[in-house]
Design a protein around this nucleic acid. Sequence first.
DNA 1: GAGCACTGC
Length: 820
Amino acid sequence: MDRHDRDGQTDAGRHAHRGQESARERPRLRTTSNHSMDPVVASRVPTPSAATTTGQPLPIEPYRKELVDAISELGLLVIVGETGSGKTTQIPQYILGHDPNARIVVTQPRRIAAISNAKRVAEEMGERNVGNRVGYVIRFEAVVSPATQLRYVTDGVLLRELVDDGALSAYDVVIVDEAHERTVGTDILLGLLKQCKRKRPDLKLLIMSATLDVEKYSDFFDSCPIFQIPGRPYPVEIMYARSMRLAALQTSFVDRAVDTVLHIHRHERQGDILVFLTGSQEIERAVTATQKLDAQLDYRRDVAHYHSKDPDDRRVVGMSVFGLYASLETGQQREIFEPARPGYRKVVFATNIAQVCLYAIRWTTTRRWCEIGHGGHDDQTSITIPGIVFVVDCGFVKQKLYDPVTHMDALVVTPISQAAATQRAGRAGRTEPGKAYRLYSHEAFSDLPPNTEPEIQRSALLDTVLALKAMNVHNVQNFDFVDAPNPDLLTAALRDLFLLGAIDDPKGLGHLTLLGRQLMQLPVSPWVGRALIAAAAEFKCSSEMVVIAAMLSVESVWVELRGKAAADSKRQAQVHEQRRQFFDRTGDHLTLYNVYSAWRNHDNSRSWCRENLLHHRALEQAQKIKRQLESILDKWSVPDTSARDPTTSRLDPVPILRALCTAYYPNLAKKQVSRPVFYQYAVHHGKRADSDALMSLAIHPTSALAAAVEKGDPRVGEIEWVLYHDIIYTTRANMRFVSRIWRWEWVEPYVPRLDRAMAAAAAAEGAEDGDEKVESAAAMQSEKPTPSTSAGSADDAQKAKREAAITAARERALKRRRVG
DNA sequence: GAGCACTGC
């Protein structure tokens, strides 16, 4: 295959060049073209000093004095250094060396990074245990003591501390690490820390980033100086596909990725291959296709390295092909990190999970493999998959985009940014010089946006706005964001907070209510929290709702079939039958409760999970969240109540569903007669029939009610009204976690609030769209869910209009992305 | 007929 051109400039070369450009503007900025040893390898050497195996210092070491001087002199600094330069582990130690009494906090976007950095630094400082001078705090786990001076925390933890103490008086130095990832947490933190720094000029603030677009942070912090640390481990050569545009690539990247893997396997030297794709289904398809092509290879004839004369170069005799994505079962994730059999080239098809960080595992004295992601993180450290020399980058990523108009998340395949492409390529140069094959042309690369759109500009901001309000930021629109989110996102969040009763004014300038303060205390989505408070305070079913709240807060508990099994309709039907044992006739919320109860009744058994195709990891996480929620309710002195009849022990679903209505009444949907399609009531009822906000909602295929809606089920009966947890738009708009509502009285008390919110929205839009009127609550009453109610049958024109509404929502989201 | 990745008193 020769459609890949060699790009004259290596990735490292380009970086050095860009760095020098910036150096002219910022006198403190340093650059270098040195390539150092892989610092991850270095860190595994169990010596107190941070040195590589050959005794070479970490890239950051020569700058120790200058850094310490800059930090103590300036107090506010942006530090750039690529992953592995040593900035996260060394800088806090330098500060402690200079000021032995300093109290330092370092934020990380991921739990696992907080843990592994704390462990590494404790080891380097010669500490016997983590939790003495060096510790970490993440949800469910605080490994600190009164002696702890340096703590690594997730950004959510520091946010919570800021709610209680806006001056952060517990710290002298705050370090925000991985700022380039631009998570919502980091972005909010930066805005709040800017305020905090004004109140406390003595607070030292360091922003650390791995990408070069740091001028943005410098500008944000009043043009503060930037300090650059050198250190890309090894050069990576970049190969581009000749004249391949992204539009053409989007429909063919799986096949092209497989072709490229085969090309590398046949012609390139030894080394494993990491391929970036967008989703689990493509990954399974690519794995199957690659295995099939491998089986057809005649190694003697087709594979250059079969006849290698180099004694160090083992004969290549096969491929070991793996997939890697988050919803994979733990056991299958862990296979990837085991070395391939001798003579076999390892190929890993992965989602973006591999771009940011790869969580592998140290083979410890306990001889225990650890899980990736949630839970079970003992002995984990973050390293790359060993031996990756080649990276194949498809140029796309799957991203969630929230549309504030329809309150809908869309999961869309989007071109990556140049910064993301650089990070992906960097995965090839961790243990030796590598090569990255981009499936798109150099020209297509130039057309990519330089940086990934910050998450805050494409997410629902309900939690964020709630947190800001709790910190007395009443005019959220005027908050000092690094990049301001679209005003529609803020308006939508304010509307939802009003609907939940968390703020007292739908226009958003209002203050947090008592309920709002309570929601802030609960570490779950405000929707879930509202249902829990209603269950505890009003409907006497807290013990059931803590389970449902916890289950709604974790990833899906259902294990999906993979590969060949997924294509087998008989096997699929079997799985569905197996799941039915948990299904509740009222819908998914009580089904989640049933799953959890069954798991508890089987002593939290892992093997029982495997037999029943359930994710043990998710259930364990749910149990932790449940306990946390229970302890908060305890602290509030809320009595434990149950909807179970003490004599018959029969569970009454009505109080549970009514408590859910308290929160989710805006997510009420009405089924169309003789069609398995619903309309969202809140949007529907106040608008004219031809409004483009009308759109059809389908039921998620994993829902307990899916079969009943599609085919009818005498056990469930006729479904007319449902409430849902959320909507995810993929090829259609799917409601997830759906339960039946069969009494109008359950939602009626909350409808006036809906009217008020809509009236406020209409008043805001009034000037530009005076034509559109919100109907009165009285007119709306005709929509009451009585058995006689029948919506007009949808004629074709109307149906087309609704489909167009979905397309419009999607385009709005994409347009926002482009403009944003 | 499903479907990126994170996170929280």
